[in-house]
């Protein structure tokens, strides 16, 4: 009985694992190494790589800066409307990402958007706009993950720290943050992964102008739309490679207790 139980669970794990591996193995077999090298050496793709890495990194950091206190507030204090706020913050997770892009574009046609424009904060078709489009979605995922980490926490530990001389900030930094570390690292990875792969809102809100607002997912779309499948595949594999290396490196750092 135990054997069937174990085999079933491991079997399903293996099935999903091999589905993903086979998928990318197909990509690798389709493209030669020479073609891959040639594709990623083109200046427009190199620009897109650089822009993707920079914007996704900034988005991940901003998401953490906002999500940590926001998640803490939602978990620690029950206040009027907290359930409604929580539900609204989940919207970017369940909505099609394209809706965020359209909403951002429409927002800049409204009164408040126009005020921002006149104060030099016109982000449509700009690089900061890419960060904003990525942030709105990535931050929701980040917040959800950190919230789960905080929900499993015993806040009496903070209370004890306060009786030993800490103020609220010190108790948070010395007790709560280290205990939520794994959740926070996971949230950062998720935010970064969402940001680097974000396509819909970036394309709608910032367009895909070569050497200006072109990021890796939009490059794949552009290359595919003009029939350069090998080039699109090369960029896709590059994205897979970045993601895999980053995920493995972070897991290793957490495992060794460095993060």
């Amino acid at each position: 009985m135990d054997r069937i139980f174990k085999t079933t669970f491991l079997g399903l794990l293996g099935l999903y694992f091999f589905m993903i591996v086979l998928l990318f193995a197909g990509d690798v077999s389709y493209i030669s190494f020479a073609n891959f090298k040639e594709a990623i050496r083109t200046p427009e793709i190199r620009y897109a790589v650089k822009l993707s890495l920079i914007t996704s990194f900034i988005t991940a950091i901003l998401s953490l800066i906002v999500s940590i206190p926001a998640a803490y507030a939602l978990v620690r204090w029950k206040f009027f409307g907290s359930n409604f706020i929580d539900a609204v913050l989940d919207l970017p997770i369940i909505m099609p990402p394209l809706v965020i892009g359209i909403s951002l574009l429409v927002f800049y046609q409204t009164g408040f958007g126009n005020i921002l424009k006149t104060h030099g904060l016109d982000l449509v078709y700009t690089i900061p706009g890419i960060v904003v489009a990525q942030f709105i979605i990535a931050c929701a995922f980040c917040l959800k993950t950190i919230k789960t980490a905080f929900e499993g926490m015993d806040f009496r530990l903070e209370d004890v720290a306060k009786t030993l001389g800490c103020n609220s900030w010190q108790a948070f930094v010395r007790i709560t943050l280290p205990l939520a570390k794994k959740g926070i690292v996971a949230a950062g990875i998720i935010a970064w992964a969402r940001a680097i792969g974000e396509f819909g809102p970036v394309l709608v809100f910032c367009g895909s102008t070569r050497f200006k607002t072109e990021v890796l997912p939009t490059t794949i779309f552009l290359e595919l739309s003009i029939g350069r499948i090998e080039s699109a595949l090369a960029v896709s594999l590059l994205l897979v490679g970045f993601s895999l290396i980053s995920l493995m490196a972070l897991r290793l750092l957490v495992k060794r207790g460095i993060l």
């Binding site: 015993d154 209370d159 009786t163 205990l179």
Partner: peptide
Amino acid sequence: LPPGKRGIGYMPQDYALFPH
């Protein structure tokens, strides 16, 4: 006064030692 300024030692139920 804030808890840390009172000069009171407090030991809660289940001890609440800092696990990290």
